[in-house]
Design a protein around this nucleic acid. Structure first.
Length: 125
DNA sequence: AACTTGACGAGGG
DNA sequence: CCCCTCGCCAAGT
């Protein structure tokens, strides 16, 4: 038997690993994670995985959409719980419920080497 | 086995 | 900048 079937249906665990690597005060987009998984995966699939993620072991709250807003779908009742938690993490949201991805979007170093390891001074104004 | 839904993204108006 | 449409892959019925 091959113990290398880690790229079959265990792709969800890979998503969990990535999400768990997200530090507090930082967020990632579905598309970003999908890109790390590799070709054949789309933001739709990532969102589907998140739907079955353990809210106690996986910081699903740090995964938002490319708009910089929370996309918990119809589960946003009575309020955007995800945004509430992220705000507690130190992320600032505007009246439209969107945050600056340029500041909070973070890329894991072990998955993809890019230019994005600078630490923004969350000083705000 | 086929159709529909769904925590998304990019492009066009 | 906001709204609408199409494309994507996986899972449920």
């Amino acid at each position: 038997m091959n113990d290398n079937q880690t790229n079959d249906k265990n792709y969800r665990e890979r998503v969990y690993e990535i999400i768990r690597a997200i530090p507090v005060g930082r967020v990632m987009t579905y598309g970003q994670i999908a890109g790390i998984l590799g070709a054949g995966y789309t933001p739709r699939t990532v969102g589907f995985v998140m739907h079955g993620a353990d809210t106690k072991e996986t910081p699903w709250q740090r995964v938002i959409n490319s708009q910089g807003a929370c996309s918990t779908g119809k589960m946003t009742v009575p309020v955007n719980l995800q945004q509430q938690i992220l705000e507690a993490e130190g992320i600032k949201f505007d009246a439209k419920g969107r945050c600056d991805l340029k500041i909070y979007q973070w890329s894991p170093e072990g998955f993809k080497s890019d230019e994005d390891d600078e630490q923004p001074s969350l000083l705000g104004d």
